[in-house]
């Protein structure tokens, strides 16, 4: 059974989104809406750091990796952007060298956009369950740069942050966070509108609530878990307002959604739910036996949900 055995994150220093007002082409009214209703006060960014450096910072904080390097058979990078580095550069190769993981098979998992993190976890579990070595591990990395005008934000939805995460995955059910159920659906009408025009944005907005609720329901069914059994939801940190609507539809109390970091991280691509897991665990928000839900939505457009037991 797939489980997360350890997780670490790196959150660069925060910068008020007001500082990006001109770059994001926000009017004063829009900026106030982002701050007051979306809950997006600041985002974490390090403009001088590369993707590789940001991922390495998260991975080097993963103390549970030390001494276990030879058990790591797979290094997976979950990625939102289709091509964030000039070819043939890649973050994985230098990361594997730096971390002593050159013996592992390393590749990027993508095209579910920001939902690729949950896919990478499921994929890692699939490979590990088939691996001859029952002690084999996978290292999954996520988080990206908000380095261009088009990748700094999703207009009228969120502002991107550069937080990164690293976590170890095992097929051993004794891991601290066991995956119980997963559901994902890609709505292909958005496949060639990764950067959405106005019409696609409107259609996506209409789909957002029903699409997210659909995969949440399916993941809960797979996990044989009721909504009311969830202790916590670890969401994608796009904005606070969207969760008010989704919670209303689901009948889920808003205080069960871990929204603590939205105001200081922004939306950190594939890394959000795992950054939230690290933080919620650190804050003692999850107790042994608690069941919780991770969610992600990727442009393009993929909706995903995953249920765990802590």
């Amino acid at each position: 059974m797939t489980s997360i055995t350890a997780v670490s994150s790196c959150l660069p220093d925060t910068i008020p989104i007001a500082r990006f007002q001109k770059e994001l082409q926000l009017t004063d009214v829009q900026l106030r809406r982002y701050q007051r209703f979306y809950g997006l006060a600041e985002v974490c960014r390090d403009p001088a750091a590369t993707e590789t450096e940001l991922l390495l910072r998260a991975a080097t904080k993963l103390v549970e990796l030390r001494g276990q390097e030879q058990r790591v058979k797979y290094v997976l990078q979950a990625r939102t952007m289709p091509a964030p580095l000039p070819y043939p550069m890649t973050s994985l190769r230098p990361l594997q060298v730096e971390l002593g993981l050159e013996h592992a098979a390393g590749f990027v998992v993508s095209h579910h956009a920001c939902a690729s993190g949950l896919l990478a976890l499921d994929l890692a579990g699939t490979l590990l369950a088939a691996d001859p070595d029952p002690d084999a591990l996978a290292l999954v990395l996520a988080g990206e740069k908000a380095a261009t005008a088009q990748t700094q934000s999703i207009p009228d939805v969120t502002v991107m942050g550069e937080g990164t995460v690293a976590f170890l995955v095992s097929a051993d059910r004794t891991g601290s966070d066991r995956m119980l159920g997963y559901a994902t659906r890609t709505h292909t009408q958005f496949g060639d509108e990764f950067i959405m025009g106005d019409a696609a944005a409107k259609e996506f907005q209409d789909l957002y609530g029903p699409g997210l609720c659909e995969v949440i329901g399916a993941a809960l069914e797979e996990a044989r878990c009721g909504l009311d059994e969830l202790a916590l939801v670890l969401p994608h940190n796009v904005n606070r307002l969207s969760w008010i609507g989704v919670c209303k539809t689901l009948g889920l109390p808003l205080d069960k959604v871990f929204l603590d970091l939205i105001g200081e991280t922004g939306h950190c691509f594939c890394a959000d739910p795992f950054i939230n897991l690290q933080k919620a665990t650190e804050l003692g928000r999850l107790r042994p036996g608690d069941r919780y839900l991770m969610t992600s939505v990727g442009l393009g457009a993929t909706f995903a949900a995953m249920v765990f037991e802590h």
Binding site: M1, T2, A129, A171, G181, Y182, E214, A219
Partner: peptide, 9 residues
Amino acid sequence: MFRATAPVR
């Protein structure tokens, strides 16, 4: 939709 329980060894 793809939906599944966790893979099991």
